[in-house]
């Protein structure tokens, strides 16, 4: 194992201990990473021929260095995300309780929406053609009067569009839920 400046010099060792103490709000792995980085910095600067007191002066006091780290962390806090276990359970729960409603809603709204969205304009066109005694049979076969087709056509189209819009919003909401669960936010 390489012996570092801090291992060999009590002043450097005291500095790193003080830094670790001042970094108390950080969790242990983060704190260790920061201390290791500053330890490597001391080593690199010493290897570059700089005297230890100059290196430490440039770093500032252990407390002020720790404060700078904490201020940066405070400026950009990590999201308090859930752990992988709760994320997995969350996704599993969503799968269990969300699958059936999603299947029902999708299998109802998707065909209904598409069928009405196509049938509406066709019926409307058929109604217009009916006024001019032009038949669209056998493409369109309807017992309705042309004026009824002209009124019903756009209404069906609107219902179809509404079905697809509701389905779109629902799927978007489900995807958002899945993303939130997966990221643990």
């Amino acid at each position: 194992m390489n012996r570092t400046v801090a291992d060999q010099n009590p002043v450097a060792e005291r500095y790193l201990t003080a830094l670790a103490d001042a970094l108390t709000p950080m969790n242990a792995p983060e704190k260790r990473e920061v201390v290791d980085e500053i330890r490597a910095h001391l080593q690199d600067a010493k290897a570059a021929g700089k005297p230890l007191d100059e290196i430490l002066t440039r770093l500032g006091s252990a407390e002020s260095l720790a404060k700078a780290y904490l201020v940066e962390s405070y400026l950009n806090p990590k999201p308090s995300g859930a752990g992988w276990i709760s994320r997995t359970f969350g996704l599993f729960g969503l799968l269990v309780f969300g699958s059936l409603p999603t299947l029902l809603i999708t299998s109802l709204l998707a065909p209904l929406g598409i069928a009405f969205l196509i049938a509406g304009p066709v019926l409307f066109t058929s109604g217009i053609c009916g006024f001019f005694d032009v038949s669209l049979a056998p493409v369109v076969q309807s017992d309705l009067e042309p004026w009824q087709q002209i009124i019903l056509g756009p209404m069906m189209g609107l219902v179809g569009a509404a079905c697809l819009w509701v389905l779109y919003r629902y799927l978007k909401w489900i995807l958002k839920l899945v993303r939130q669960m997966a990221s643990g936010r």
């Binding site: 500032g60 780290y69 940066e72 950009n76």
Partner: peptide, 28 residues
């Protein structure tokens, strides 16, 4: 140094940079 190191730390927390360990001829 007391400005640069904390910024590096934040950039890492932000996942803007990634870090990895590599042997150094001068120490750890």
């Amino acid at each position: 140094e007391n400005t640069v190191y904390p910024i590096l730390r934040r950039l890492k927390a932000d996942r803007v940079v990634e870090s990895f360990l590599q042997d150094s001829p001068s120490g750890p």
